[in-house]
């Protein structure tokens, strides 16, 4: 099981979702991806994308506009 951090700060939706989607394709089931972003839309869109693809959001934080989403990859 790998743990990777992916910095997508400064990107505006839907780019954080697209980048997360493409990144997850390269990861294995059980891997953890920590996504950092700044667009508040990502707080909604990335979890929505994860739900429809069956990946788990294990943590979601928004500290003064710094968003951190922790995703468990499920293929």
């Amino acid at each position: 099981m790998n743990r990777e951090t992916f910095d997508l700060k400064g990107l505006i939706c839907p780019l954080p979702v697209i980048r997360t989607q493409n990144k997850i394709k390269t990861l294995n089931s059980g891997d953890i991806l920590v996504v950092l972003c700044s667009d508040p839309g990502a707080l909604h869109d990335i979890p929505a994308w994860c739900r429809i693809h069956g990946h788990e959001i294990i943590d979601s934080q928004n500290k003064e506009g710094e968003i951190t989403l922790t995703i468990k990859v499920v293929h």
Partner: peptide, 21 residues
């Protein structure tokens, strides 16, 4: 609402959605 319409529709339909750059 900060929703992405395409994701929202996919979720309503229960289908996967691929967003392509």
């Amino acid at each position: 609402a900060k929703r992405n319409d395409a994701l929202w529709v996919a979720e309503q339909l229960g289908i996967k959605l691929h967003i392509i750059d």
